[in-house]
Design a protein around this nucleic acid. Structure first.
Lengths: 338, 338
DNA sequence: TCTTTGCGTGCAAACGTTTGCACACCTCGC
DNA sequence: GCGAGGTGTGCAAACGTTTGCACGCAAAGA
């Protein structure tokens, strides 16, 4: 009594062959209306749920997407996940999720595990493993979409924010406000997005004819703590070399920086303009509200799913690069010449 | 060439029976060292990954946990997930996650889908479906842990924050600061946690001999927007009935309230004390830093997994109720008698 | 009335594993 | 020299589905 009913149990009760039950439940492949109804009734009564394992074994497909994330607690990741959910729920897809903690080694191990579930496709967020994929990717034999990840090769789906453009946009905004000493608080050093944002920062500087100063490059990891540490560092600098504005890798560390500035009485934006990246929900309600570069995160997730589906239908799919806009709030202002 | 290698492919290459390959790879059940090494080498070379589907079909177990969440974007959910990840990664478990959007109907449908993957256990977060489970739960035949959910029945694992106690703690803190008119900004109305926090609020009031005033009960849904709306409502009240403190269902709406208060020039905590619930990371760095009731979220996730594992080992498991502590920051202060 | 068509159904194979059982061989003790 | 015990391997069944093929039967065409 305690094992889940199988198609055979239904067949026995309905006095038909298992295959007939399968067909009846699968839709209309030539089963008489009478038997179909009888079978459906029995199935409902026993509340039968098909075994995904058995089904995927024979069909090869699984109505499942494998998702690889560095972790679930980052609001940016959460937003992408939301998009993935939204796009795939309609198609009745489930998700097998593996968390890597940002460790490249765990990451490729996790990919193999996920492959074991033979999902119909794989979505990989913020991969740091890079070329380590080259070996396993071809053996996977399913569409793989990389979201905001290092470039692996040409044959791979890539959905990414145009981070270079975003970095450029942020920096140019600060430049237009008259700032000359603009710091960049970086993110996880190996990340592709971090490098792209930094590149945009340097390009904007270059275009404005301002020499790049390595001393204004602050190391971080995109966490709240990193923002706080960065502000501490900035405060330790003598006034004449202290940056008047800082472009932060993401909103989270920008928020940390903001909080610490408030705590130490450094007025933002009057004494220090701060701009973030991502536009996470709380960015709109921080004190002061954070100027930031919008990242169309949910869209990122949706597009990743759509690309997978398109690839599954054998349609040609192109890489996607999304540009977010500058959202001016109150954490940046013109440089006050004193 | 493009299909994943199976155990048979290895068997062919190694010139042994599939069963021998299985045994060799599974550990040491009587296979000679020589063949084992040969098989392992071949398996590694073909980079073989076992089919989780096939394995789970025959063994019945799947090294998989089904997880049901209302959505991934809520930082509180994210924190619980983090705990789940942490506790189960070591055991090599993967997660199949379904998102319900808080819709009870979708919730029970999702449970059936999850059951189709026959996971070894099910963890259900913040369920709103309540008694709808009574029918399907017995048919599941696997341990099910409810985290912060409505009480279903006795035979079910329940891991929950002591929300009543938390609500009481929060309200008492405000009372001790001298507040008399304390509002409660509620969460999703059907939620168990919302009801418990409200109950704690009323108990504290009752103990302090302050009559409960329904007008001070504000409807909300735990979102940032709800917090903003609540503040708007408070401002619309005439001074003499306006609450001097508000206990918010969660940090998110408390933060929304805070932001709106700042915007409208209502000083917090001087004119309005605000206390939240959850202690999400940004609560520590808001302006002002938010006084809140800690919720041991990660622990919640870990304990859910541990309970599932214990149940799987046939060990007796008891319900767990976790008490979070009051964390006093700067959004609450004594009532200034003017 | 006899073939043709087509509809409803059943049989059996297949998917990739695990595992109980049996078998062959080898070693050891008598 | 013969049986007992142990070790390494293979066979085949089973898990719960789907699906190609074939079969029986009724309706329709000749």
């Amino acid at each position: 009594m305690h094992n889940r009913p199988s198609i055979k149990d239904i067949a026995r009760r309905a006095d038909v062959a298992p295959s007939t039950v399968s067909r009846a439940l699968a839709g209309s492949t030539r089963v008489s209306a009478a038997t179909r109804q009888r079978i459906e009734a029995i199935a409902a009564e026993m509340d039968y749920t098909p075994s995904a394992a058995a089904r995927s074994l024979v069909t090869g497909a699984s109505k499942t997407l494998g998702i690889l994330v560095p972790g679930l607690s980052d609001p940016y990741i959460a937003a992408v996940m939301e998009g993935i959910e939204a796009s795939s729920a309609a198609a009745g897809y489930q998700h097998v999720i593996a968390s890597t903690g940002g460790d490249p080694e765990r990451e490729i191990r996790a990919v193999r595990m996920l492959a074991g579930y033979n999902p119909d496709g794989l979505i990989i967020l913020s991969s740091r493993a890079g070329k380590a994929y080259l070996n396993i990717l071809p053996t996977l034999n399913m569409p793989v979409a990389f979201v905001n990840s290092a470039q692996i090769g040409d044959s791979v789906l890539s959905i990414a924010t145009d981070n270079e453009h975003g970095g450029w946009l942020a920096t140019r905004h600060l430049l237009e406000l008259g700032h000359k000493r603009i710091a960049y608080l970086g993110g996880p050093s190996r990340g592709r997005s971090q490098q792209a944002r930094a590149a945009g920062y340097r390009r904007a500087l270059h275009e404005a004819g301002i020499p790049f100063d390595p001393a204004l490059l602050l190391a971080g990891d995109g966490s709240i703590d990193a923002g706080q540490a960065a502000l501490r560092h900035i405060l330790s600098l003598p006034e004449d070399v202290r940056p008047t504005a800082v472009f932060c890798y993401n909103d989270l560390c920008a928020l940390g920086l903001l909080a610490h500035a408030r705590k130490h009485g450094l007025p933002v934006p009057e004494s220090l303009s701060v701009i973030g990246f991502d536009d996470i929900p709380i960015a709109a309600i921080s004190a002061p509200p954070l100027t930031t570069i919008e990242q169309r995160t949910t869209e990122l997730g949706q597009l990743a799913v759509d690309s997978i589906f398109a690839a599954l239908r054998q349609e040609p799919v192109a890489d996607i690069r999304l540009r977010g806009e500058l959202i001016v709030r109150a954490s940046t202002c013109t440089l006050s010449e004193t």
